[in-house]
Amino acid sequence: MRLIAMICAGLMMASPSAAQERETLGYGRIFTNDFFGDNEDRWRSGSYAYSIVRGPEWDGVRPSTPGAIIEYRLRSEIIAPSTVNGPGSSDRAYVGAVSAGVHTHFARGAANISAGVDLVATGPQTGILDMQDWFHDIISAPNPSAFVEDNQVENAVHPTVLTELSYRLPIGTATTLRPFVEAQYGVEDFVRVGADVLIGETLQNDMWLRDSASGQLYSGIESGRPGTGFVLGADYASVGDSAYFPASFGTVAQEERFRARAGVHWRFGDGISYFYGLTYLSEEYVGQDGGQIVGSLKLNFNF
């Protein structure tokens, strides 16, 4: 909790002059769903993240001052058992999660740093399971069973600190290697190491955000340059405590996770862009009968 207070205080101490000059620089959004990957509806079933990025300006380089660029982030996620009704519905507890947070993005020498705090709400209070039940009625999909509803992760609010340290290593004029280290403490505790490769001149001057579920990079601020770009990445995480695996349910979380991903960005000018990516997620709990592939989608139409 002391670390959370320190980061909150740092974000609030951004200079008044910078706050007065701050404007909206971009919007980050990404939708990730199991259906877009392996055409299933299970485990990391679906998530949506939306961010508003504000700051004094963007010239393709992060400022050196923490708090000069602020990201306001909203996110929702469904983590489900293998099936929401019938056999397989007891392999892990159902998770409905909604979060709101504030993050800052800055640079120290060659290092890019992101740090922030999210309040992550879980349980029936989020209304996520009710929303999925309503949507499944519309599309005639199986509805969550009484067992799934009664055994979902309980109501709670988890203050969560997330930090990332990355390095931008250019390889020629159109390719960048981006190794990173990420750490989180709160709703899930983990330390993650990995790297991404950005291919294409159109991707070289964006400010990148990372999707929590898939690890896919998506733009918080786009350079606006038209073209096509490709993203490849992989990472490994060592996982500690997780509110998504309550001891009362009995499912035991894997202590290690692996992700591998690829995606393509299409840019057609300022405000019109598309992204589609696929991510392999390794098993998250002991006894899971395999990994899964999720798809991520981003559509921008700013007129």
Score class of each variant (00 low, 15 high):
245 F>E: 01
97 A>H: 00
272 I>N: 14
95 V>K: 00
92 R>K: 05
273 S>A: 13
205 N>H: 11
50 Y>H: 13
164 E>Y: 03
267 R>A: 08
303 F>L: 09
80 A>D: 03
100 A>W: 06
272 I>S: 14
97 A>Y: 00
90 S>H: 08
213 A>H: 04
74 L>E: 00
188 E>C: 00
32 T>Q: 03
169 L>P: 12
41 D>R: 07
244 Y>K: 04
23 E>D: 10
261 R>T: 03
209 L>F: 04
72 Y>Q: 09
290 G>Y: 10
162 L>I: 11
234 A>L: 08
288 Q>A: 04
73 R>F: 01
31 F>L: 15
246 P>G: 03
164 E>I: 08
190 F>V: 08
129 L>C: 01
157 V>K: 01
82 S>D: 12
107 A>D: 05
290 G>D: 01
123 G>P: 01
78 I>C: 00
8 C>E: 14
251 T>K: 12
165 L>K: 10
228 T>A: 13
260 A>G: 07
133 D>K: 12
2 R>S: 15
125 Q>I: 10
236 Y>T: 13
53 V>I: 15
112 N>W: 06
201 E>N: 12
227 G>M: 06
228 T>C: 08
268 F>A: 13
189 D>R: 03
268 F>Y: 11
199 I>N: 01
138 I>T: 12
235 D>W: 00
1 M>L: 10
113 I>S: 05
175 T>C: 05
91 D>H: 02
93 A>R: 01
208 W>G: 04
222 E>D: 13
261 R>N: 01
301 F>W: 09
68 A>N: 10
81 P>G: 09
179 P>D: 03
254 Q>F: 00
1 M>G: 13
165 L>P: 00
129 L>Q: 02
154 E>R: 15
178 R>G: 00
170 P>Q: 02
180 F>I: 00
89 S>Q: 15
190 F>L: 11
57 E>I: 00
152 Q>A: 04
165 L>G: 06
240 G>Q: 05
128 I>F: 00
295 G>L: 05
29 R>N: 11
300 N>H: 10
223 S>T: 08
243 A>G: 07
291 G>C: 02
62 R>D: 02
228 T>E: 06
10 G>K: 06
54 R>A: 05
143 N>F: 02
9 A>F: 03
102 V>D: 08
280 Y>W: 11
65 T>N: 13
